[in-house]
């Protein structure tokens, strides 16, 4: 069987340029993981349902298992590794997921973080129902989504500068677990 040879592709991921050489059949997810070394993007189903592989392509959430790397030539891709502000400061969505126990095994987490961060950055005023609809794009098997919703709402408040957003890192006072989101 003749396999079409690899083709050069230039990807811009989290602000860095990656010149990689991939077969056309290489999905963006596999290129990120294996050619760019960015293994934070996970593969949970490879048919577009679970959403663990969700990344932002030119600012829009997309399933990186349903896109070929060659199609992302020249595009700007943002993955979970690119969300944090720097080595000491998490993105507000990451911070809120930490404080509100929005993860357990963590396998789905990168997809939820990119999805939520991308959406909140574009839609700061989204209501809870709208956010739940967005979050329904991805599957989580551990959390029952309770704390993912709670964390996303808290992140929204923090990103909008609401002092009740609870991002000061003083999480020991967060004893109000199991109740309704603040």
């Amino acid at each position: 069987m003749s396999i079409p040879s690899a083709v050069p592709v230039r990807l811009y991921v989290n602000g860095d340029r990656y010149d990689v050489s991939v077969e056309p059949r290489r999905t963006l997810a596999d290129a990120l993981r294996e050619d760019c070394g960015l293994t934070g993007t996970h593969l949970g189903c490879e048919h577009g349902v679970c959403g663990a592989c969700t990344v932002l392509v030119d600012g829009q959430p997309m399933r990186s298992c349903l896109m070929f790397a060659v199609q992302a030539e020249g595009s700007s891709v943002r993955t979970v590794e690119g969300l944090a502000i720097d080595d000491t400061t998490l993105h507000p969505v990451q911070q809120a997921f930490w404080e509100h126990h929005g993860l357990q095994c963590g396998f789905c987490t990168p997809g939820f973080l990119t999805l939520a961060a991308g959406y909140l950055e574009e839609h700061p005023d989204a209501g809870e129902a709208e956010l739940r609809d967005v979050l329904s794009s991805n599957l989580c098997r551990c959390t029952g989504y309770q704390n993912i919703v709670k964390a996303t709402l808290a992140a929204q408040q923090a990103m909008n500068g609401d002092p009740d957003g609870d991002t000061d890192g003083d999480t020991d006072t967060d004893a109000d677990v199991g109740g309704e989101p603040a």
């Binding site: 979970v80 020991d172 967060d174």
Partner: peptide, 18 residues
């Protein structure tokens, strides 16, 4: 205490190892 998990910072940054 509802301590934030020690496991999480790495996972949140995409630095977990599966």
């Amino acid at each position: 205490r509802a301590l934030p998990r020690l496991e999480d910072p790495a996972i949140l940054r995409g630095w977990g190892t599966y």
